[in-house]
Amino acid sequence: MKKHKKKLIIIGIIIGIVLIVIISDKRKITFIEKGIKDGYTFIIKAISNNCENNCEDIEQVELLKAENNQLKKDIDNLKDLLKLETTLSEYKTINATVVDRNLGYWYDTLTIDKGQNDGVKENDAVISPKGLIGYIESVNYESSTVKLITSNLKNKISVKISINNKEIFGLLNSYKDGYFIIEGVSEDVKEGMIVTTAGLGNNYPEGIYIGKISEITTDNFDLVKTLKVKSDMNYNLITLVSVVSK
């Protein structure tokens, strides 16, 4: 009986912890948490900026060269962003800088320096010059957490592939070994075709670039295809992003 009691207590504790985690995953962030996180983001931003200034003093010439190159890249990126913005004219875009990333390791998240006060809202899409990155998972006053699309997708993303005047729709299911997986496509598609968001049924606006088809596999009956889509994005090196807000 005692053994059973112990087992029941242990099982109860495990179920309790799991329930607590599930609840805390879906809960809204309190203003105290927002304040603490904003304060931390402010400190990290200040340190990063300060470090940059000090480094400039020490190795000015080399850094100016590097900075020049970086600025050129940034200008290109921003030009690309502007091009992207024209296709998303009915949406407001908010440019932001990444402060830190993926600290919980499992969550595949980024922290950006724009929040509620800048007009960022929960579930807004987040893009980079090279396409879709993810969505806003939680918003603080001066910072926000971005959930990357490379993480375990809770909601499938509706996507489309444009062939001449025809559009083929599909669902982006998961991200595995550097590729996005689209399942259930029956129409003829070819490698190299561009995949964009379809804007159906979720928060992602239509026409955001995701990647190009790099591999096509068919099922045993040659009816349904599974597509592997390669993104141009390096998800480990994201510095500038844009939040697409309605």
Binding site: S24, E33, I36, D100, L103, S138, T145
Partner: peptide, 16 residues
């Protein structure tokens, strides 16, 4: 608690 609030939004899990 601080780690959970700042980094993961899962302070109960971090607390445990």
């Amino acid at each position: 608690l601080l780690y959970g609030i700042i980094f993961t939004n899962m302070f109960l899990l971090e607390l445990i």
